[in-house]
């Protein structure tokens, strides 16, 4: 896949970082404001797709990106399940136990393990959607050769 024109590339350089930051904001504030892991993860995937579409596969090594993204996705899912299981070893013996101190409602660092769930789910969703997009491009280029 070829990249787009210079205008698109420059605008992407300006915009993609801001979109990425907004995704991180939505994930981190997931327990305070509307949004959360799923919404923020899709926004982050959108910024990555923006960069991929603008610069194309002659600038980015897409196969390498795909290998790294697969690792990140599996790691995030594993961490989600590990946190869920680790609730079993603290306090009440149930899964999904909120074992960290809950803090003051409304503060950024509060709600125990919920922000951690948000962060890992966000990473996993971003990686999943980005992999699906990348695989569509990579497999088409492989078959065209």
């Amino acid at each position: 896949m070829k990249g787009m024109t210079l205008i698109v590339k420059k605008t992407t350089q300006l915009m993609a970082g801001i979109v990425f930051m907004y995704g991180i904001y939505v994930i981190v504030h997931g327990h305070l404001t509307p949004g959360g892991g799923f919404a923020g993860g899709v926004i982050i995937a959108g910024s990555l797709i923006l960069v991929t579409l603008a610069f194309g596969s002659d600038f980015l090594k897409l196969v390498k990106e795909e290998a790294g993204t697969t690792l990140i996705e599996s790691f995030a899912t594993l961490m989600f399940i590990l946190i869920a299981v680790s609730g079993f070893f603290f306090g009440t013996r149930i899964f999904f136990n909120n074992f960290l101190p809950k803090g003051v409602v409304g503060h950024l660092i509060s709600a125990g393990v919920l922000p951690l769930y948000n962060i890992f789910v966000g990473t996993e969703v971003a990686a999943s959607i980005f992999i699906i997009f990348l695989s569509l491009i990579i497999f088409k280029e492989e078959s065209a050769q």
Partner: peptide, 10 residues
């Protein structure tokens, strides 16, 4: 109960 201000996340 959950410590989360956003009920949906809770």
């Amino acid at each position: 109960k959950t410590g989360s201000a956003n009920l949906v996340t809770g």
